[in-house]
Design a protein around this nucleic acid. Structure first.
Length: 478
RNA sequence: GCGCCUCUAGCUCAACGGUAGAGCAACGGACUCUUAAUCCGCAGGUUGGGGGUUCGAAUCCCCCGGGGCGCACCA
């Protein structure tokens, strides 16, 4: 760290007239060695700087891109100071747009001002920062030093914007529901616990917004969605962060088939918005997201990928035998055909599915909020969209019958008593709401982080979350 | 949670039982169209922390901490 004096006066604002990308877009085509007579003011961080005696060059980088600054002793104010700018310093600069003899579009700086200094280094100017610990703990460094990190962040920003726009276009209203739940519900997961002092009660960070969103549908909001964080107290992996962003939406008068159409249009549309193509590359393989996606039942897919002919009506012992044959650990004795079938699917099939495919018709035992299948009472009308072996969401025709919902909750309570900590807890307020009448409704959850991962072509969820959950570090990295 | 790997200058990496180094950054200087500019000079470290083995430890062993990967759990 240098003993450079703190700038005596950093201005409170800077009047920027053009982003770097705007300068490039407007004047990028001019001839080498020409001047435009147009003055602009740009601002950003100094990238590579090449002071060279009585002339100097520096890359000015902002969120949109970069443009070269060209300084000359005699015409650039405080030329000596300009020559001493360091990698990462923020400056604002005013000058004429021109192109150097070598053909580099530049702003010939007449005046400039230091907006903030970078007292700390920003890593190797060529290789950036690759140490994952620094990249995740100090994302601000990563974002500046590594173009890939910037690209992913920009992709995520754009995805969230276009996602909302596409839902608004379809008549969905964005709403907000509580994050602090007295009863954690809407998903099978273990919650984080917290405490409210004034009420002196434990509260849970939500594991899903589902039950509240459906209560809004009961209240008459026919198409709602929420994009927000949910929290699940489970292990961390390259596919899992304890807090992650979920899109949930509910559409009255629709069933799960309608949502399949919605999902394939939404996801392929977002791919077009962000990438200009529906084709993505995952693990070196190409996957086309253009509709229509294949629809196949869970049992069909198990048979297809593992050669095992079973379904939810198969004898328990058959299902257990197949699980043993694929090397799965012995499941608990109380598991029914539904859980066993799902286990078999996850062990043998899910990972093999390149997709995109809608895996449909799930066992009722593992779907306590979904409506029974119109053709088979042991199944529900549910699907998960799978791309590259990864579930990116979950959707179903919603269970609307309060009596049956109560029975499902009671069944969950039984599983919970048997030791399943992820089983749901009976929620009287939710049942009360159902008794007011939930119209036929279809609901969807989409993992936003996983969607960003697919479209950005990264295989670690930490790459798409600006500040992923880490153990608190010691002070040596500060 | 369990297993394996990893931690050396601000960053990226060498040195793998025998005097801790390089490139970049930083700092001082030269240079009037550069593109990872070039050139000269200078400085930079309890080798993640602690303990042990050894004449001698960045290097071998043990404990602790951070991180990565795999498994398990889930979206």
């Amino acid at each position: 760290m240098a003993d450079r004096p703190v700038p005596p006066q950093v201005p409170y604002r800077f009047e920027r007239t053009h982003a770097a990308a705007e300068v490039v877009a407007r004047w990028g085509g001019i001839e080498a060695g020409t001047e435009t007579g147009e003055t602009v003011a740009v601002a950003g961080r100094v990238g590579l700087s090449r002071p060279q005696g009585r002339v100097g060059f520096a890359e000015l980088r902002d969120w949109t891109g970069s443009v070269q600054l060209f300084a000359l002793d005699g015409t650039t104010a405080d030329f000596a100071g300009f020559s001493k700018l360091r990698l990462g310093d923020w400056i604002g600069a005013r000058g004429e747009v021109m192109k150097t003899r070598r053909g580099e579009l530049s702003v010939r700086v007449s005046e400039w001002v230091l907006l903030a200094e970078a007292r700390r280094g920003f890593g190797d100017k060529w290789r950036g920062v690759t140490n994952p610990e620094i990249r995740y703990r100090h994302r601000e460094v990563d974002l500046w030093a590594n173009p890939q990190a910037r690209r992913v962040a920009q992709l995520r920003v754009l995805l969230l914007r276009r996602l909302r726009e596409r839902l608004w276009e379809r008549g969905f209203d964005e709403v907000e529901t509580p994050m602090l739940h007295a009863i954690p519900g809407g998903a099978l997961a273990r919650p984080f616990v917290t405490h409210h002092n004034a009420l002196d009660i434990d509260l849970y960070l939500r594991i899903a917004p589902e039950l509240y969103l459906k209560r809004l549908v009961v209240g008459g909001l026919e198409r709602v969605f929420e994009v927000g964080r949910v929290f699940r107290n489970e292990g961390i992996s390259h596919q899992h962060n304890p807090e992650f962003t979920l899109l949930e939406l509910y559409q009255a008068y629709a069933d799960y088939r309608d949502l399949m159409v919605l999902v394939e249009e939404l996801v392929s549309g977002l791919a077009l918005d962000l990438l200009g193509t529906t084709e993505i590359v995952v693990d070196g393989g190409r996957i086309d997201l253009a509709p229509p996606w294949r629809r196949a039942t869970m049992t069909e897919l198990i048979t297809e990928s593992a050669g095992i002919k079973v379904d939810v009506h198969s004898p328990l012992e058959d299902l257990r035998r197949h699980l043993r044959a694929v090397g799965a650990p012995e499941p608990p004795a109380e598991w029914g055909a539904g859980k066993l079938l799902l286990e078999l699917y996850e062990k043998t099939t899910e990972r093999e599915l390149s997709g995109p495919v809608f895996v449909t018709d799930w066992p009722v035992e593992v779907s306590p909020l979904a409506r029974r299948h119109r053709d088979d009472p042991d199944l529900v009308e549910r699907f998960e969209p799978v791309i590259a072996g990864r579930e990116i969401g979950n959707a179903f025709s919603e269970l609307v019958d309060p009596d049956e919902q109560r029975a499902r909750f009671v069944d969950q309570a039984r599983q919970r008593a048997a030791g399943d900590e992820e089983a749901m807890i009976l929620d009287e307020d939710y049942l009360w709401a159902l008794e007011q009448g939930l119209p036929p409704t279809a609901g969807l959850g989409l993992g936003v982080d996983r969607l960003v991962m697919l479209l950005a072509g990264v295989d670690n969820i930490r790459e798409v979350i600006a500040f992923p959950t880490l153990r608190p570090g010691r002070d040596e990295l500060t």
